[in-house]
């Protein structure tokens, strides 16, 4: 048996960690979301729902939240569309090159987020690589303005950044499918396409759900890509939170928005987990 002291020594660090860096900030944020700011720029500890009412009343807040969700949804779809075929190819077709290709997919994860975002800036800008090329081959006369500082740029960058996150769980799910099931399907007369739709896809659903959750949740809370590449039209909800906690000095409203996002994200994670369990068989 372990001594009481040993048990305490082992349990204490994680408990302290969670208490200090998770529980306390969330409780503080929860409290803040009911407080308000006085005209003299001090925090007033009055408990009311005004911040939540503002969130619904002021167009820019809920519209930005909706736009953020729409951007995140597009990122999710594009990430899945890219990641699934990639994972499928790697798992079923790559053969000996599997390990190498896997590394190639994962390597971008080791590259700094900022570097990748800036890379897109140099590609999409008016003097960027893409516009220069388009004019050079005379496809366009003037630089295309919508490429940079637009929701398009944000979706593109976030898709690039979060596709590996969608890829990993899908790849893991595909790797888990016993290959004799694929053989059994062919044996029973199913063509490769029928085998995909009837066996491989249904059995990889948990991976797809996990990948989609990653892509959606991570891009919903992103603030660097919209900051660097979004321009005024590509602003996302996190940028508003950042400014509320910064220049605007309205911590209570910022806390209320953050809390709404937290509830949204936690709900999503729970939902996708439950759905994933329904689709998992072992």
């Amino acid at each position: 048996m372990f001594s009481r002291g040993y048990k305490a020594a082992v349990t204490l660090p994680p408990v302290l960690w969670v208490a200090l860096f998770l529980f306390t900030p969330y409780v503080l944020m929860f409290c803040y979301s009911f407080w308000s700011v006085s005209p003299a720029q001090t925090i007033v500890h009055s408990w009311d729902l005004n911040n939540y009412k503002d969130l619904l009343r002021v167009d820019v807040y809920w519209q930005t939240l909706l736009r953020s969700m729409w951007i995140a949804a597009r990122v999710t779809i594009f990430s899945l569309l890219l990641a699934y075929p990639m994972a499928y190819f790697l798992s079923f077709q790559a053969g000996k090159r599997k390990d190498l290709l896997y590394q190639l997919v994962v390597i971008p994860l080791w590259v700094s987020y900022l570097v990748r975002a800036y890379a897109w800036k140099t590609i999409l800008g008016s003097d960027g690589v893409l516009n220069t090329l388009l004019q050079y081959v005379h496809l366009t006369r003037h630089p295309l303005e919508f490429l940079l500082y637009s929701p398009f740029a944000v979706v593109l960058t976030l898709t690039h950044i979060y596709t590996p996150f969608a890829f990993l769980p899908i790849y893991a799910a595909l790797e888990h499918i016993p290959r004799n099931l694929v053989e059994a399907s062919h044996d029973l007369g199913a063509t490769p396409a029928q085998t995909f739709w009837r066996v491989i896809l249904p059995l990889s659903i948990p991976g797809v759900l996990a990948g989609a959750t990653f892509a959606f949740v991570l891009s919903l809370g992103d603030f660097l890509a919209p900051l660097l590449l979004g321009g005024p039209s590509g602003i996302m909800i996190s940028n508003i939170v950042v400014s509320l906690f910064g220049a605007a000095y309205n911590w209570p409203l910022g806390a209320a928005i953050s809390l709404c996002m937290l509830v949204l994200v936690v709900g999503l994670i729970f939902g996708s987990e439950r759905l994933g369990k329904k689709w998992s068989f072992s």
Partner: peptide, 8 residues
């Protein structure tokens, strides 16, 4: 050998 029934 291990039946390979479709689990879903």
């Amino acid at each position: 050998q291990h039946y390979a029934l479709f689990p879903h």
